[in-house]
């Protein structure tokens, strides 16, 4: 039993913060997706126009933005798998907290594989 009433608000802790993070990363990814389809559409204008637009992604500022975008996608994806398990696996709700820490650990592993290579591509003397 909780040692004090939880009130009528959401109970906080891992469950609430992963829910907040899922919304924030989802909105970020959605707005990037709108921009990304528009910049890709320039490919039907001319090769020169597309290369000029996509070339801006090679700038180091965009490189850091891409790192943040990939981080948002990866944590949204892994927490999304956790959500699916919470909803469809009989023991999902019981293990929701430990599954969040597993998702975060997988996130760290994937980013540790992604970031060095991506940052070398971004900053590596082109």
């Amino acid at each position: 039993m909780p040692d004090r009433p939880g009130g009528t608000l959401y109970r906080g802790r891992e469950g609430m913060w992963s829910w907040v993070a899922q919304r924030v990363t989802g909105v970020l990814i959605f707005f990037f997706l709108l921009v990304h389809v528009l910049d890709t559409a320039v490919i039907n204008v001319s090769p020169e126009a597309y290369n000029a637009i996509i070339g801006t992604y090679r700038h180091w500022i965009m490189g850091l933005g891409e790192a943040g975008l990939v981080a948002a996608v990866v944590i949204h994806a892994f927490n999304g798998v956790r959500l699916i398990l919470v909803d469809f696996w009989a023991k999902g709700a019981k293990y929701q907290r430990v599954m969040l820490y597993i998702a975060l650990a997988l996130f760290v592993v994937v980013m540790a594989g992604f970031l060095p290579r991506h940052l070398m591509n971004t900053f590596g003397g082109h």
Binding site: P47, I54, V73, R117, H118, N121
Partner: peptide, 25 residues
């Protein structure tokens, strides 16, 4: 989408010279 987007990101950012490989060709 997890499969589609992870595949997309891997091919476009992790193969060759990553984002520097992306152009019209």
């Amino acid at each position: 989408l997890l499969v589609l987007i992870f595949g997309h990101l891997f091919i476009n950012l992790m193969t060759g010279e990553g984002v520097h490989s992306i152009d019209f060709a």
